[in-house]
Design a binder for these strands. Structure first.
Lengths: 376, 376
DNA sequence: GTGAAAGCGCTAACAT
DNA sequence: ATGTTAGCGCTTTCAC
């Protein structure tokens, strides 16, 4: 193994000079710097991570706590993880992946053994058990999600949080539909487990949906669903029985999207003529659905990137910047339209299969409806 | 920060005794061990990862190289990653996640900076550029996938590989269909990019499919497809035009599954009466599809677990165990049946929508058809 | 602008 | 069964 001492000898300088060339914490004359750089390249030297960590108390590693619990949509998690690793690398950090259920214990492990400089905490719930440990901890942490009811509360607690403004996202969906004349909306939500767990984003979305529904005088039904065809079919069928006037659906459940669209086709309900559908999901899901969906995008990449950038800033000595709620962005696609003048009282007449809307040609002309900030 | 010296002082022993209690590399009398353990708990001591790494040249970290390139199905990757982290933790290891495209450079970085003890390499292609670096490297590596044409070649090169036996999996699909009397089969494969990249598993599957098709006198068509409705529709439509006698489809492309089923419904082709469908995908996808699919399972969890266990064995001093090809397991579900006596020459008469098969009740009685090892 | 030297916290001979 | 001690490879004062 090539050590710093080897490089120093090869370049005919002292170890400290080599170290300073590497860290740039002291000015080195151009000739020596070049000579040293040459030796480094020639010998293929790489600083030993452990030694550096011991001497400097910095590991250049970020821990990513990503407990993958039931009901979570994996691709979104993965997209965040990718954005985290990519952004981290661009700042010189590596990422340690923690997926276990250990919770607070994992926090203490990272903290106590100095295995990482900072942490990104995902799948945050209200009263998250990791929160107290994290607040006592020396190392900075950034949450993806909100461990409190409101952004204000998070700020007050001195937390650094990054998330989509799910309340505004919910409101935005209702506004869009209300603007199209819909007065009966049903929400297909995350699986029950997600709500029971107190995972903030689902609750905040619901808050926003309800507030906007109230403000616009729109009726709102909410049904958590598992992402299976059977569960979706049961929920939707019940909704139309209970509220025949329902003309629009909001889906916040990636796994339920295709089952839902299949079901509507099977029931002979045309999208968007009979039923409008708005999703809250990553754009990729919305675009590739069997009907391109009007949707509020879940900006997974941006969340991961932002989280890392805040963490890097904190490691550079900055104070927490407080909560960053990303404003929702709704893109109108082929799944929403004006409310039908007279909503059918039940399933449409079984007059053959509804033609499935073919995915629109990529880049084709299409109404886009981009409003940055929703109500709230 | 609490150090080992603090613990030693608190317990009235020397530092090395504490170290040996932790490592168990020397027998300690029960009284002292207990006294020391008590001090450790009382002070909340955790060994400093960097110091330990420097002194012992072991980091207790495994690097997971998981470049997420286009065409890969993210949930499978994630499932493997989860299995890796879980298994690793159970052996006392943490996992460093490397997702970049850096390739060989990342290998050298891990190797040179001693940031991890070993590596798990995913998304392995033929002539993988990381292979040479890895072979020179001091640290052991396990591949998930095969960087060579055959398992024998991998063994000869002294590699440790873990993968599903995709050739046998392909063969198994054909055998199952041939056994049901099908004589015209079309394969919907991974996106073109996956084949072009030389990613071994797709090619090996095709080899197995073709060999078995030859052996059973079955006609075989192969079409790579992107996982979009449009791409699937184009490919399938063309297949039925070119080979009207096609009565069965094999899908190796998770993203194409739902689009395919939706398309078949739309075309009025009943599954399995008009067309049988066999998938090569994780069981979860097969079970939750809108028609429960007969499928060869991609055992993501087992692959991750096996890879870690081999790596741990190597770190404990064992020799490479060579390539482990997991035998394919085909489970018969609702999507396959006997070949129609007279296959319809074109799309069936547009006699209303085919009733979508509701997902079978969980745990309900169903024919299962479990053969461990396929041909090959 | 450069060197010398004292650790960082732990492990593992080498002693007894 | 336990203590002593010499590093592991790097960073960072302190000194010139």
């Amino acid at each position: 193994m090539v050590t710093l001492a080897d490089v120093a000898r090869h370049a005919g300088v002292s170890a400290s000079t080599v170290s300073y060339v590497l860290s740039g914490k002291r000015s080195i004359s151009a000739p020596t710097r070049e000579r040293i750089q040459h030796s480094i390249d020639a010998l293929g030297y790489r600083p030993h991570a452990g030694a550096r960590a011991l001497a400097s108390s910095r590991t250049d590693i970020l821990a990513l706590m990503m407990p993958l619990r039931t009901g979570l949509y994996v691709p979104v998690m993965m997209e965040i993880a990718m954005a985290v690793t990519t952004t981290a690398r661009s700042h010189g950090y590596d990422v340690l992946l923690l997926t276990g259920e250990e919770g607070p214990e994992a926090v203490r492990r990272v903290e106590g053994s100095a295995i990482a400089d900072a942490m990104i905490v995902m799948d945050v719930g209200l009263d998250d058990p990791r929160l107290p440990c994290l607040q006592e901890a020396e190392r900075p942490a950034v949450f993806i999600g909100l461990p409190t009811e409101t952004a204000q509360a998070a700020d007050a607690a001195g937390l650094d949080c990054v998330d989509l403004d799910f309340a505004a996202a919910g409101a935005r969906c209702v506004e869009h539909l209300a603007g199209l004349g819909h007065t009966g909306i049903a929400v297909l939500g995350e699986p029950p487990a997600v709500y029971e767990r107190g995972t903030g984003f689902a609750a905040r979305t619901l808050t926003g949906l309800r507030a906007a529904a109230g403000a616009h005088g729109v009726g709102l039904l909410h049904r958590p669903v598992d992402g299976t065809y059977a569960a979706v079919a049961a929920a939707v069928t019940r909704v139309f029985e209970e509220r025949p006037g329902t003309t629009a659906l909001v889906v916040q459940n990636e796994a339920a999207v295709e089952p839902l669209l299949a079901l509507l086709r099977h029931q002979g309900r045309a999208v968007p003529e009979d039923v409008s559908v708005v999703a809250i999901c990553p754009d990729q899901v919305a675009v590739h659905a069997s009907v391109p969906l009007t949707a509020v995008a879940v900006p997974a990449q941006e969340m991961g990137r932002l989280a890392v950038e805040r963490l890097v800033a904190r490691l550079a000595g900055e104070q927490p910047r407080g909560t960053a709620l990303i404003p929702p962005l709704l893109t109108a696609r082929a799944s929403t339209g004006p409310a039908a003048p007279a909503a059918p009282a039940g399933p449409a007449a079984p007059a053959g299969p509804a033609a499935p809307a073919a995915p629109a040609a990529p880049g084709g002309p299409r109404t886009e409806d981009r409003h940055g900030r929703g109500g709230r």
